[in-house]
Simulated assay, not measured.
Amino acid sequence: MAGVGRAAALWLSESYRAANGQMVGKKKAAKKGKRTPIGDRVQFLTMMHPDVIADIKQVAIDEHRAAWDVMEQAAREFLKRRRSKRASRAATD
């Protein structure tokens, strides 16, 4: 395989061919941290200060929960407080 790079030569070699002649490669390891969705949840990306993230992760560890669960609970509690504040303001207006 003159003129072919080492990686290309390995890729083309017989050791990377199945019995039927089709090319096969090494299995890719599962990505660390990937999880299947639970229920009807979807992924949501946000940015936070590293100290806040570290605190959230520590709470999750202390409570034997996933960090996303801690964040979901915090968001639900925030939204509940916000709704009740708006309702009380609307009642006084």
Rank of each mutant, 00 (worst) to 15 (best):
M1D: 03
M1Q: 10
A2H: 11
G3T: 06
V4T: 13
V4P: 02
G5Y: 02
A7T: 11
A8T: 15
A9H: 02
A9T: 10
A9S: 11
L10S: 13
W11E: 07
W11N: 12
W11I: 04
L12K: 10
E14I: 09
E14D: 10
E14Y: 09
S15D: 14
R17S: 03
A18Y: 00
A18L: 01
A19H: 05
A19E: 09
N20R: 04
G21L: 01
Q22T: 10
Q22Y: 03
M23Y: 06
V24Q: 14
G25Y: 06
G25F: 02
K26Y: 02
K26E: 00
K27A: 07
K27P: 08
K28Y: 01
K28Q: 12
A29F: 03
A29K: 11
A29L: 08
A29G: 08
A30T: 12
A30Y: 06
K32A: 08
G33A: 04
G33Q: 03
G33I: 02
K34L: 10
R35S: 12
R35H: 14
R35Q: 12
R35A: 10
P37N: 06
P37A: 09
P37Q: 09
I38W: 09
G39V: 01
G39F: 01
G39D: 03
D40F: 04
R41F: 05
V42G: 14
V42R: 15
V42P: 03
Q43H: 08
Q43C: 08
L45K: 04
L45C: 04
M47S: 13
M47G: 10
M47P: 01
M48P: 00
H49D: 14
H49S: 06
H49I: 00
H49M: 07
P50K: 00
D51T: 00
D51P: 01
D51K: 00
D51G: 02
V52G: 08
V52I: 07
V52R: 05
V52Y: 03
I53N: 04
I53L: 06
A54H: 04
I56L: 12
I56V: 14
K57N: 13
K57H: 13
Q58F: 10
V59H: 06
A60R: 14
A60Q: 08
I61T: 13
E63K: 15
E63F: 15
H64G: 07
H64V: 11
A66Q: 15
A66K: 15
A67E: 07
W68C: 05
W68N: 10
D69H: 11
V70M: 04
E72P: 00
E72F: 03
Q73S: 15
Q73H: 06
Q73D: 15
A74N: 05
A75P: 02
A75C: 09
A75E: 01
R76A: 11
R76K: 14
E77C: 02
E77D: 12
F78C: 00
F78I: 00
L79I: 05
K80N: 05
K80C: 03
R81N: 07
R82F: 08
R83E: 05
R83N: 10
R83K: 12
S84F: 02
S84D: 02
K85A: 04
R86V: 10
R86A: 14
A87I: 09
S88C: 04
R89K: 12
A91Y: 08
T92N: 14
D93Q: 10
D93G: 15
D93N: 12
D93W: 00
